[in-house]
Design a protein around this nucleic acid. Sequence first.
RNA 1: GGGCGAUUAGCUCAGUCGGUUAGAGUACUUGCUUGACAUGCAAGGGGUCGAUGGUUCGAGUCCAUUAUCGCCCACCA
Length: 883
Amino acid sequence: MDESKNLSKVYEPAAVEEKWYKFWEDNKFFQGKIEKGKEAFSIVMPPPNVTGMLHMGHAMDNTMQDILTRYKRMQGYNTLWIPGTDHAGIATQAKVEAQIKKEGTDRYQLGREKFLERVWAWKEQYGNTITTQLRKLGSSCDWDRERFTMDEGCSKAVREAFVRLYKKGLIYQGNYIVNWCPHCHTTISDIEVEHVEQEGKLYHFRYPIEGSDEYIQIATTRPETMFGDTAVAVHPEDERYQHLIGKFAVLPVIGRKIPIIADEYVEREFGTGAVKITPSHDVNDFEVGKRHNLPEVVVIDKNGKMNENAGPYEGMDRYECREKLIKDFEASGVLVKVDDHTNSVGHCYRCNTVIEPLVSKQWFVKMKPLAEPAMQAAIKGDVRFVPERFTKIYLGWLENIRDWCISRQLWWGHRIPVWYCQDCGEVICETTDPTVCPKCGSHNLQQDPDVLDTWFSSGLWPFSTMGWPEKTPEMETFYPTSVLVTGRDIIFFWVARMLFDALEFTGEVPFKDVLIHGLVLDSQGRKMSKSLGNGVDPLQVIEEVGADSLRFMLITGNTPGNDLRYRTERLEAARNFANKLWNAARFSLMNLEDYTAESSIDPEYQVADKWIMSRFSAVSREVTDLMDRYELGEAARVIYEFAWNELCDWYIEIVKPRLYGKEIPESRYGAQKTLAEIMTSTMELLHPFMPFITEEIWQHLPHEGETIMLSSWPIKDESQIDLKINEQMNLTIEVIRSIRNLRSEMNIPLGKKIEVIINANSKENYAYLNDTLSYITGLASIEKMELKEQLSEKPAQAVTAVVHGIEIYLPLKGLVDIDKEIARLEKELAKMESEIKRIEGKLANKGFVAKAPAEVIEKEKEKMAKYQASKEALLVRLNDYRA
RNA sequence: GGGCGAUUAGCUCAGUCGGUUAGAGUACUUGCUUGACAUGCAAGGGGUCGAUGGUUCGAGUCCAUUAUCGCCCACCA
């Protein structure tokens, strides 16, 4: 163990953090134990992408989880925090595809098997990056239970879940309109589509009516889809078009006949009131098409290019086609006019390509039956969102949910466990790979080429990580988990899906509380993003100021659900706090070198000792309450203020003379004992927030046990809160402040010793101050002090301050400017009078006296008495001067 | 088109059940090489809590209206 003398003046986190993390991990302190009869606390980590890097969002999310986990662990819960990573289908595959592109090849040339080998190799190479980074942050998760969404167990869970849903009829295959990303070359689900308002054009075309000279004018934002038109729709009650319903329009260029139909979906006021219907490339048109049995003509292929149905435009990119078409139609007179028009266009959330809605054969999860129990769980309160307002957002989403398209045309992911018999067409879906068709006996089976949406496996995460579908000890001990901590941006993607999956497969909610936090924004309030280049790297920050400071910065001043701006000033404040703690520890250790917990000396405890212990009791209780309500930012603030203001600025300053001087061993020993205890307890209270520095300091201090992380949460008995002592110290502090203030106003530097006369003006105050006189002389740098219960003769040449009726005189022979002094006292008097007037008004208010709680009234009366006493003292002094 | 959040000191933000003289960090002013810490100490200045109306003995806090900014959701071509 280091000697305190060797502690550097400035805290150096790097070595300390590495040392302790290794110590904790090597000793398996993070491990969740399979124990019966001990209350469990469990969290599953939202799995970061396996090839990802730790960003500020992760740092905040995991700091919150770690704080809760460490807190509960110290409270004696059997604690488990399961870490893990997500295979992140599209993102990871895209990275590897980019890599092999540089080698001049692509996945199709490579083939499925070879390509997957490359992805696994990539995963092996980069998969540890983020878990290493999470360790640097101090995350106390159980690494022995680390999981990966594509490991054997999780894959088994995915398979089981799919088969169960399939057999229940909740997974089905069908030809529907889906969101296709022409760049990622796969379908994506509705929530993976980001709608962006865009300035676009509204093109008006005229289609000739068959067998007539008439035209029908339609308006569209997507001219190129006209080759897929299979009808023109008008509102059934639209008088303008009554005579055309049932007739046919003729598509320009290709000359195909399409019916004019009536459907209430059409808004008469919009455009021309006539809509071209393209069932295979528009979600609404798809619905209309279903209602009217319209054929579906696909005209845009999976690369976003026009196909053979686009006649002369075949092979063109969809936007190229649009341009060409407009030019051609302008010439041929089909184009009537072009209006400016803003509309919302769907983009792929991964690559930002404009989504092409198209009809294709995909797998879907039927949502209504799953959504209902998931909604009920929130309504009944089985699951609770913090802050509560997110319940409404969650419910709103589930209420309007549409079926979930889960098949992805990727290779990296869980392959859909469905086989098709090539001979009889039988569809086989089982938990074990089939080798023979149960219907025709054929061995010619082929597995569905697609993989599942990454979020399909994420939804199972809270229980797949615990070994479901097996009845594992983990499931029995730790499931359902206690709380889920996550960002509000993935409530739909993830939280909702875990809820309906858990209810379906385990019959229980997967977690009781959902703690939602906001985003970490840059200093200007913008989202941190790669493209903006405004992201701050948490690892660099850790390197510079340490993980503790980063954690503290991410937690303080943050409210659940709200965004947090990253500002270097705040980080510096956190770093300064760490340094402050460090130096308080240095001070303590310097003065505890000869300290032993057991001694023949009888400790003498003074007011300050009792006060700091009393304050700690109150603070630890408040912190505990705040933690239990997930008010982590407030809890951190309360500890900060206690440690810096009360402990460092007051207690340590007061206790110095007792520690330095060895003349009264009992007093010194009492101070040592209190200091040792308060420092240790404060480190424990702060440990969940700043695990490294608290461990380092704690280990140097007298302590019991191997590690601070397994010490008991330092909540004190309420009976240790001593209000009388608090009052006495507060009075002492105010007196010291007043004297310091006088010095400052009179320009007397602290170095210069002064003489002070105090007239307590009451028995009680006299007794109080008499007890703490040495603190006053010490902290106000007083050479000669005179304290009287009632001063018979008041000093003539002195400046005066009054606090709670106590008169404080600072004799300054020949230096007192009487006029200035009178002005100063008058100002003070005016202040008192205005306060008195305010309280008088309150107390004169019949309603207040009748309805306010007794203690509130009592408080007001006490204040009144104090102000009155001060006022009178001031008046007397003023009269002396005026006389 | 709906919903949510924010609006408090120059700046960035806390303020939970309505009840001290509304707080912190930072910035600012003044003075300090006080034997833990200048990443520090001491003393200060700085706020009509976005606006209006209401409920209440009492409102930063609750209700209504409204303004500005931000976010989310929604199939008007």
